[in-house]
Design a protein around this nucleic acid. Structure first.
Length: 593
DNA sequence: GCTTTACCTG
DNA sequence: CAGGTAAAGC
């Protein structure tokens, strides 16, 4: 029930397959493999050299050898890898010629519109991935409710007869606190669940639920019956709420997410927040994002109708940066000029949510041990112990939109002092650095989860403590270029691996948190696991992987610039970066923790 | 011409 | 990851 069977989870196939592939490739002479990929001479760049073909093949070999070297490094590591032996051998003999035939691919430079491209008020995204855990939490809440009801009823039973329904209120209200402003908490209330179910229209179970809700009334026979009634009612209510959550999350993620993000994202929008053209919406995103595998599967008993599954998903992605695609949803606060809000104030707001509201549901609400124990059964978190601490707060619906935010240092978490943190922000922003520190590099890597093609303006905005000059800007842009290089190499590698593994449908490919490719990417960009990789990055990576898969499958990799269309696609999918990353003291915070 | 990018190399 | 180069876009 955890992973859709259709999803390729490379880890399950991992190195055994990889090794096979590698072995085969090692055994087979490169030239044999080049048979398929080698360029028709007609496509070769014109050259007066008689040995042009030879040079070309050498070049292709060199490139292939490089990829293969990396592949081998993956599957054979940590054993010593033949470090580009072929490449070094081949390219050393004719570097000039080889290079001459390369630079055919140039990525779309998104300047101009991209430069102005404010891409803020979209924020971290939480989507269906943790619905399971939310479900667990709901059930847990239900259990508490039931316990409260049971206790209250039994204690009052001798004195009070059936029908004392008011006793439900206190425990329920108490429990609801942990959900805080969750829009779904309303539906926890049994009496509203059937009449106020805003999502009822799409829920096939509504009628059935209403019918069942009347049953208990026919058997009023004592406290036990009342308890049973309450229990059933609560069960149904929670089920309904869960249904609604699932429906909403799976069918219309951006909408409800946006609603949730409005509380803080709009505040932090600086100059980049430009109102998006109202006409555009996520639905118009030209990419076939709906083909992304659904990573959240309904539970066995969850009444998520097949009809909804068949319905094409709305874009499940993070809102794409407006610099490329206008945001589908406009936060009402997005137009608030940031200048009117001191930075420490909105930082404080965010932190208030991080330190107070989100975790509160966990720390001061229901017993912590219960919550944490609820999160453990999730195979996802079980496979990623480091994520656990971040997922606990995320169990609350309220903190859903904080999912992509970095884990705050435990020190700060324990303090619960929002002012302390914001004061620290103020102090650290005064330290303008001339050069780039390892912390900046680390931060840049984390930013890569959200933006693959940051403009220099964006970088300047997110590194307020850096004194930018031409050199620094170039260096930072170079970083991202290197990040992309690694990223695309991995994508190509795993796409080819999937092909060699016999995968035929690109939809079978997905980058999941338990995937080997995820591990590789996470290791590269998030070595210390200081950050929870945002879902939107996984979706981008999945899409990239699929695009590479499709291109290679179609044999487009014989085209010298076959990657260019992929780059173009990916370049349009930059997300907004959580404001917390803009904090100049973010890297320092990471290191302190 | 300057900037940004992909690609290669070490 | 940085240096270098060629190419492409503004």
């Amino acid at each position: 029930m955890d992973l859709p069977p259709v999803l390729l989870s490379p880890q399950s196939q991992t190195c055994t397959h990889l090794a096979e592939t590698c072995m085969e490739r090692e055994r087979s002479p490169p030239t044999a493999e080049l048979g398929r990929d080698s360029f028709p001479s007609g496509q070769l760049p014109s050259s007066s050299l008689a040995d042009a073909d030879w040079f070309w093949d050498e070049h292709i070999q060199a490139k292939r050898a490089r990829v293969e070297t990396i592949v081998r490094g993956m599957c054979l590591s940590p054993s010593p890898v033949v470090p580009g032996s072929a490449r070094a051998r081949e390219s050393s003999c004719c570097p000039e010629k080889a290079r001459e035939r390369k630079r055919k691919q140039s990525l779309p430079t998104h300047q101009g519109p991209l430069k102005s491209g404010p891409a803020w008020d979209r924020g971290p995204k939480k989507r269906g991935t943790r619905v399971k855990e939310q479900l667990h939490l709901l059930k847990q809440q239900l259990r508490h409710l039931q316990e409260h009801v049971l206790q209250a009823t039994e204690s009052r039973a001798p004195a009070q007869g059936p029908g004392d329904t008011e006793q439900r209120s206190p425990p329920r209200a108490k429990q609801r606190n942990s959900f805080l402003s969750s829009p779904w908490t309303v539906e926890i209330k049994p009496h509203q669940s059937s009449s106020k179910d805003v999502y009822g229209a799409v829920k096939p179970r509504t009628a059935e639920v209403q019918q069942q809700a009347e049953e208990p009334m026919l058997h009023p026979s004592g406290p036990r019956a009342l308890v049973e009634t309450l229990r059933k009612e609560l069960n149904r209510a929670v089920s309904q709420a869960v249904d609604s959550v699932l429906q909403q999350v799976l069918l219309d993620p951006p909408d409800h997410l946006t609603r949730q993000e409005q509380s803080c994202q709009g505040l932090a929008s600086e100059g980049r927040s430009q109102p998006s053209p109202p006409g555009r919406s996520a639905h118009r995103e030209p990419l076939a994002l709906a083909t992304l595998p659904r990573r959240v599967q309904p539970q066995a008993g969850a009444p998520l109708g097949n009809s909804s599954l068949a319905t094409p998903l709305d874009s499940p992605m993070c809102p794409v940066s407006p610099r490329a695609v206008p945001k589908p949803y406009q936060s009402p606060l997005a137009n608030c000029p940031l200048t009117a809000v001191p930075s420490h104030m909105w930082e404080n707001q965010i932190l208030s949510q991080l330190l107070g509201r989100g975790p509160d549901g966990h720390w001061s609400g229901s017993p912590p041990q219960d919550v944490s124990s609820q999160s453990r059964p999730s195979p996802e978190s079980a496979q990623q112990p480091w994520v656990l601490s971040q997922q606990q707060p995320a169990l609350s619906f309220t903190s859903v939109h904080l999912e992509s935010r970095p884990l705050l240092p435990p020190v700060k978490m324990e303090q619960e002092g929002k002012l302390v943190f914001s004061d620290a922000l103020f102090l650290d922003t005064k330290h303008i650095q001339e050069g780039l520190s390892p912390g900046h590099l680390k931060k840049a890597k984390l930013m890569f989860f959200f933006t693959r093609y940051p403009s220099s303006n964006l970088l300047k905005a997110y590194f307020p403590d850096v004194q930018f000059n031409r050199c620094i800007t170039s260096q930072m842009i170079k970083w991202f270029s290197n990040f992309r290089e690694f990223y695309y190499i991995q994508m190509e590698k795993y796409a080819r691996q999937a092909i060699s593994d016999g995968v035929t449908n690109p939809k079978m490919l997905a980058v999941l948190r338990d995937s080997e490719i995820f591990r590789v990417l996470n290791t590269h960009y998030n070595k210390g696991n200081d950050f929870e990789v945002p879902d939107c990055f996984l979706e981008i990576a999945t899409l990239t992987l699929q695009e590479f898969f499709k291109a290679v499958s179609a044999g487009k990799d014989t085209d010298p610039s076959w990657k260019k269309p992929i780059y173009k696609i990916i370049s349009k999918l930059d997300s907004d970066i959580p404001e917390i990353l803009k904090s100049s003291n973010y890297p320092q915070e990471l290191f302190r923790s």
